[in-house]
């Protein structure tokens, strides 16, 4: 990632130095030691000063654990459901029946790929309307059979394409929001990477919102925000700060409930403990929500949404 470049350059230098023969150049030993100290200092500084824009970059890291990694690790007996029964199957959205330690659930998630080939097939995790309509089909199954829903968010946004518009992208997202709003089963949402606007929100709210430390959730991408504000996407770092899109910001606004920590450099350097911790938090949330009767559950979900917003109210 861009902000790590000085660090990687220094690591490179050190590597080269270490490969040199100490017997021929005895002064190298001291130099290596010096560089190692510098590197340690720089590593500390780089990750200590990590800001919103750096987190956005981490959230987009190609090797960051994806929806399919969480599903493969945390769930068993996965039965994937394909298609919206109207138009086609959108691989940018995963819908499945799955089991988590004996608990049967419906899993939803945006699905990015790890290779170019996968990403092309999955449209880089940006769904078309049929993706949301598949998700809705799975939600209705969850309702009919009393299965909780676990949703993983990781999309730059719903796809802004010609066909997506022709098939009613906005209509599909709106209906998905409508369905989720009073789905009478527990809904646990985990922000694992990118939370891009309406395309994330369509499967992105419920009774609990768990955010990874470097996941973001935003009304607009920092790049597009920068384009609107300054007519240049290159000022995205600044825009990322303005938008208050980090996990910690979401806690402040009463939108997210908890944060799962990541290694200093991001979840991709050591995914297993992160995935395990997410699993632990999902289990805890499902345990707590499983106790609540459906009517109370949907009433509380409404009150939770109802309370979000900051405005002034004078006489009038």
């Amino acid at each position: 990632m861009e902000f790590e470049r000085p660090l990687f350059e220094l690591e490179d230098k050190l590597d080269q130095l270490k490969r040199m023969d100490v017997a021929v150049n005895p002064e190298i030993a001291a130099e290596v030691e010096d560089l190692e100290q510098q590197l340690e200092q720089l590593r500390k500084e780089t990750y200590e000063q990590i800001g919103p824009w750096e987190r956005v970059q981490i959230s987009r890291h190609p090797e960051r654990p994806k929806t399919q990694d969480y599903v493969a690790t945390l769930f068993t007996d996965v039965v994937e459901l394909h298609g919206d029964r109207l138009f086609g199957d959108d691989e940018a959205i995963l819908a499945a029946l799955a089991t988590m330690l004996g608990r049967r659930v419906v899993v939803l998630g945006h699905r990015k790929g790890k290779t170019t080939k996968e990403n092309v097939a999955r449209n880089f995790g940006s769904p078309h309307p049929e993706g949301y309509r598949k998700a809705m089909r799975a939600m209705r199954l969850a309702e009919r059979f009393g299965l909780p829903v676990v949703a993983f968010l990781d999309t730059a946004g719903a796809y802004p394409g010609i066909e997506a518009e022709q098939r009613g992208q906005a209509w599909a997202i709106a209906e998905s929001l409508s369905l989720l709003a009073d789905l009478p089963v527990p809904v646990v949402v985990v922000g694992i990477g990118e939370g891009g606007s309406g395309g994330a929100l369509a499967i992105g709210f419920g009774d609990r919102l768990i955010m990874l430390e470097n996941a973001y959730y935003s009304v607009i991408s920092p790049e597009m925000c920068a384009m609107i504000l300054h007519k240049e996407a290159s000022r995205a770092a600044e825009a990322a700060g303005c938008l208050r899109l980090t996990a910690a910001d979401l806690i402040d606004f009463g939108i997210a409930d908890e944060i799962v920590g990541e290694p200093l450099e991001g979840a991709h350097v050591d995914p297993e403990p992160v995935i395990a911790a997410v699993g632990e938090r999902i289990r805890a949330a499902l345990d707590a929500l499983g106790e609540v009767d459906p009517q109370t559950l949907t009433q509380k979900r409404y009150e939770r949404l109802r309370a979000i917003g900051v405005f002034e109210e004078g006489a009038g």
């Binding site: 929001l177 709003a181 303005c242 938008l243 899109l245 949404l305 979000i308 917003g309």
Partner: peptide, 11 residues
């Protein structure tokens, strides 16, 4: 208004 605006969609 950032995420507060996005959540008005759900609300």
């Amino acid at each position: 208004e950032g995420m507060l605006s996005l959540m008005q969609m759900a609300k």
